[in-house]
Design a protein around this nucleic acid. Structure first.
Length: 604
RNA sequence: GCGCCCUUAGCUCAGCCGGAUAGAGCAACGCCCUUCUAAGGCGUGGGUCGCAGGUUCGAAUCCUGCAGGGCGCGCCA
């Protein structure tokens, strides 16, 4: 193969789509198409159309107003004469109005897979290795529970979706700075401090008084609404707190510490990577808020209106030309979450040097973040080159399809949900495996139960609302985390059998041969990990990784039925090859699930 | 009133910067455990992609309108 000698610059990738894209883009240019035309490589959806297909010619032909079929003929001819896909594709054919169907060479596929098998990152190129694929500093704002209350099911999505995206970014090699923008500074804290103060005066210990935050909040609220003088005390305490009163600050700190501890318990149980050092609560921006307002006023971005300071956003005017209103300071001088979020923009792009800021909150805050971005950009808090991405997610709906609201005391605490999942898992595991030891049961049911809850949520499209249902969430059949964990365990079981029988333990240097259709399907799937990770990262959509892993596990299950490994009559070569294939699958499942924050186990 | 989101199989959902005959899981039905873990595999049935137009070689996907549901819109976060 004669090619310009630029091997030292050429990327070393095992990514099929990327390789095909480069080759076909080159052929397209050689065939007279403009530089930069997207070859639009995608997986073929039917075997007769090959493994991959290039659809880009048709779109390009449309733009150039030429015949797509003729153009595609030229590209195919170019591919053939340049021999650029020799050894990679076994057959390239033109179909329909201008599809280019690519059948991959089985041997080449095996070569790529063997390379992946030797790669520490299972074929996922690390940022910074290739030119133009630089390491990004990504600030990710997620979880952000309100510390006034206990975490409930509504906090689940931000927490686990954000954590999955964070881990995906890190696995690809980006620098991630987690920011847990906890709600620790609202007016409600006046009421809570006042109530806590009374409890402590009554000889209670803070830890005990705050053992049940939900209860504590309710008590305080009742007093606020009904008790003579309490509301005034509460309001006074907010003012004192915000102006730096030491006694109030101490009470507040006690409250916050205990509430954070509650959250940390949940994080630990959920296997979420957030640490205390990731907390950058609303209170942390307090000292900067007046500066933010001063700057907005000085730049004449904000103006006074009805006693408050607001920004009129013309960019978001309605049809009548009335600008969108964004209040940045209350008429009484108080600040709002708008102010805090503006301050956060400046901190993140400035001090944290973010290239990209990603925020996970529910969809109801969409308007707010649109406004924040416009104002922050105008004020220079958010330079042009810094990406700002609000990643909304849908609401939690009840079984009847209406919003899952706080019915008569009906919020489900996250802690209780997780415990129930674990109990249900334990029941099921015991059924399947009556002889299991108590210790192992505890160990496994935790991973299975938590995994199931997380997968149920993570596997759904982030943006749509989703129906909360105990039964489907905690059913461990079908496309669920336990299915994936089970696939992993089956592989481990084969490994341990192979070793105990000395039947040929896994040889990391064994060559994987692709013979059976199930093996080929697995090879193709395994080589798509990087594409999947990249899609997860760019759109912040972990459900794509869930789909990928489920498909991988499903292909493995078929392989498991069709391709025996340790049974009679399997040659050493085939055995070694299939064991090595199993190893790559296991590594991929484990790594993929780890990104989702779901654990695997050798036996279940 | 204005704005944003959603509507795909009985149920829960994929697919959405246009691609070929719209896919899974659950539920239903039929097979497969003396054989590497049946939390499994193989198969069958099940669809006017909310409705109506438009754009074009091609629309679940893009545009317009309509209906239904959800959410938001000056001092909560």
């Amino acid at each position: 193969m004669i090619e310009p000698n630029n091997n030292d610059k050429e990327s070393t990738t095992m990514n099929i789509k990327q390789i095909l894209s480069e080759k076909i883009a080159a052929a397209m240019v050689a065939a007279g198409l403009p530089e930069g035309t997207n070859p639009a490589i995608s997986l073929s959806n039917r075997a007769e159309f090959g493994d991959y297909q290039a659809n880009g010619v048709m779109g390009a032909a449309k733009k150039l107003k030429t015949n797509p079929r003729e153009l595609a003929t030229k590209v195919v001819a170019e591919l053939s004469s340049s021999k650029s896909l020799d050894g990679i594709a076994s057959n390239i054919e033109l179909a329909g109005p201008g599809f280019i169907n690519i059948h991959l060479e089985q041997q080449w596929l095996a070569t790529q897979l063997n390379q992946v098998a030797q790669d520490k990152f299972i074929g996922v190129t690390q940022r910074g290795v290739n030119q133009g694929d630089d390491v990004q500093t990504v600030v990710v704002d997620y979880s952000a529970p309100n510390l006034a209350k206990e975490m409930h099911v509504g906090h689940l999505r931000s927490t686990i979706i954000g954590d999955a995206v964070v881990r995906a970014l890190e696995f690809r090699g980006d620098k991630v700075i987690r920011q847990n923008h906890m709600g620790d500074w609202g007016t409600q804290f006046g009421m809570l401090i006042a109530h806590l103060s009374d409890k402590l005066a009554g000889d209670e210990v803070a830890e005990t008084a705050l053992a049940d935050l939900e209860n504590f909040y309710r008590e305080a609220k009742v007093r606020f609404d009904n008790e003579e003088g309490f509301a005034d005390r509460a309001r006074a305490d907010v003012v004192k707190l915000q102006s730096g009163d030491e006694a109030c600050a101490k009470l507040w700190q006690q409250f916050i510490d205990i509430s954070i501890a509650h959250s940390e318990e949940i994080y630990a149980k959920l296997n979420v990577s957030l640490q205390r050092s990731d907390i950058m609560g609303e209170s942390a921006y307090n000292d900067d808020l007046s500066t933010v307002i001063d700057e907005l006023m000085a730049k004449e971005i904000a103006v006074e209106s009805q006693g408050a300071k607001v920004v009129f956003i013309d960019e978001m005017a309605n049809k009548d030309g009335e600008p969108s209103v964004f209040i940045v300071q209350k008429s009484g001088g108080g600040f709002l979450y708008a102010t805090t979020d503006l301050s956060a923009c400046r901190y993140r792009s400035g001090k944290l040097a973010a290239n990209r800021i990603v925020i996970f909150t529910d969809a109801r805050q969409g308007l707010h973040f649109k406004q924040v971005e416009i104002v922050a950009r105008k004020a220079g808090f958010l330079p042009e080159h810094v990406g700002y991405q609000h990643c909304p997610f849908g609401m939690m709906m009840g079984d009847d399809g209406t919003p899952f609201k706080t019915r008569t005391g009906g919020t489900i605490k996250l802690a209780e949900l997780l415990d129930e999942a674990i109990v249900r898992a334990a029941t099921l595991i015991k059924e399947k495996n009556p002889d299991i030891s108590a210790a192992e049961l505890t160990h496994i049911s935790k991973k299975v139960g938590i995994g199931a809850v997380k997968f149920a949520d993570l596997s759904k499209n982030r943006t749509s609302d989703y129906i909360f249902n105990w039964k489907t969430m905690l059913s461990f059949e079908g496309a669920t985390a336990p299915y994936l964990q089970y696939a992993y365990s089956r592989i481990q079981s084969i490994f341990s059998k192979a070793e105990s029988a000395k039947a040929g333990a896994v040889d990391n240097n064994a060559v994987i041969n692709i013979v059976e259709p199930q093996e080929k399907a697995l090879a193709l799937k395994l080589l798509q990990l990087e594409d999947t990770i990249d899609a997860v990262i760019s759109e912040c959509t972990p459900n794509l990784l869930c789909n990928y892993l489920y498909e991988l596990a499903s292909l493995y299950m078929s392989f498991y039925e069709a391709c025996p490994i340790l049974k009679e009559g399997i040659s050493d070569e085939v055995k070694a090859s299939r064991l090595a294939l199993c190893q790559v699958i296991a590594n991929t499942l484990k790594q993929g699930l780890d990104i989702l924050g779901i654990e695997v186990m050798d036996r279940m």
